[in-house]
């Protein structure tokens, strides 16, 4: 069952088409990753789902109900740019957000969440005394405190150190286990690969990817080689069948030209240097993202 359904949704700002004829179905209980370059339409799509903005065309259904002017019940929303009342105490702020979302048993939940995200000692402190990462966690608690059915997180991991990002990831997965549907936008492709059941990519307002990771990767085939050699990137110069090289210094990721046999590339390389790793793989999400949204691609598109 789909909990969110967008059909032919379009949103324009003046002459700019921010979201163009977008259709999307988010299954209940899934984690749906929204990816795309800055300014591609992710936040506008999220704002339309949240009814903060209204589409100019198309239809949008949440829990089977048509979009209307009433605010969504049982939804938690963490916007991309955080906004908290600086002068409020942490406990009071969470109580305020909990009440605004019709939450119940708030006092117990506030204490429990503050303890889990290591903020219990700050309950009586003002928001302005917190570090950026702490504010991030605080706003996350405010988003999920009322145990919403749908959780929409715009860039939830930005600004977090690896430890806190790990904690946040565990919480998100826990919430999914308890039945919540989670949409999150991110620029962290590895996080999206690891966490999301479905990935949706929007580019210049249009949907360019949508599906499970393996489904998306299948569209691109096994055209990626990961190579480690004594010569490094120098060994790849002049080798036929290589379309693009992404040099990570110790490792080179190579895109093979369509229809070219990777074994021929291996044979060529062995003539030049000693090979310590040669892996034929599907492209990573990061690679797919770059293929779609790189400046070269933009030029191609415009051309």
């Amino acid at each position: 069952m789909n909990i969110i359904e967008l059909s032919g949704v379009t949103k324009t700002f003046g002459s700019v088409v921010a979201v163009d004829n977008l259709s999307l179905e988010v299954p209940k209980g899934s984690i749906y990753g929204f990816i795309g370059p800055n300014g591609s339409g992710k936040t506008t799509t999220i704002r339309m789902i949240m009814k903060i903005m209204y589409p100019d065309g198309g239809s949008l259904r949440i829990n089977g109900r048509e979009h209307n002017s009433h605010r969504l019940q049982n939804v938690g929303y963490l916007p991309e740019e955080r906004g908290l009342y600086k002068k409020m105490k942490i406990g009071e702020l969470l109580q305020f957000h909990g009440e605004l979302n019709n939450g119940t048993d708030l006092k117990r939940k506030i204490d429990s969440w503050l303890a889990r995200l290591d903020l219990a000692d700050y309950k009586e402190k003002k928001v302005e005394t917190l570090s950026k990462g702490m504010k991030q966690k605080l706003q996350f608690i405010a988003t999920i405190l009322h145990e919403p059915e749908i959780i929409i997180l715009d860039e939830p991991f930005s600004g977090l150190d690896p430890v806190n990002a790990e904690i946040m990831k565990d919480v998100i997965l826990d919430l999914q286990k308890k039945g919540a549907t989670i949409i999150f936008s991110t620029h962290d492709m590895s996080m999206a690969e690891k966490m999301c059941d479905y990935i949706f990519m929007i580019y210049q307002g249009k949907k360019v990817l949508d599906g499970t990771l393996s489904h998306i990767q299948d569209q691109y085939g096994s055209d990626t080689l990961r190579i480690q050699s004594d010569m490094g990137a120098g060994a790849l110069e002049g080798v036929a069948g290589i379309e693009k090289v992404n040099d990570f210094s110790k490792l080179q990721e190579v895109r093979v030209a369509s229809g070219f046999d990777p074994q021929k590339i291996l044979a060529e390389l062995l003539k030049k240097t000693r090979i310590t790793r040669f892996e034929i793989a599907k492209p990573s999400l990061n690679d797919i993202f770059i293929r779609i949204a790189s400046p070269d691609k933009k030029e191609d598109n415009h051309g």
Binding site: V75, P79, R82, G83, Y85
Partner: peptide, 16 residues
């Protein structure tokens, strides 16, 4: 201030 500090967007997810 609530507009520039993005508090408005947080609240507008919940209230009209």
């Amino acid at each position: 201030e609530e507009k520039t500090e993005k508090i408005a967007e947080v609240l507008l997810g919940t209230i009209t």
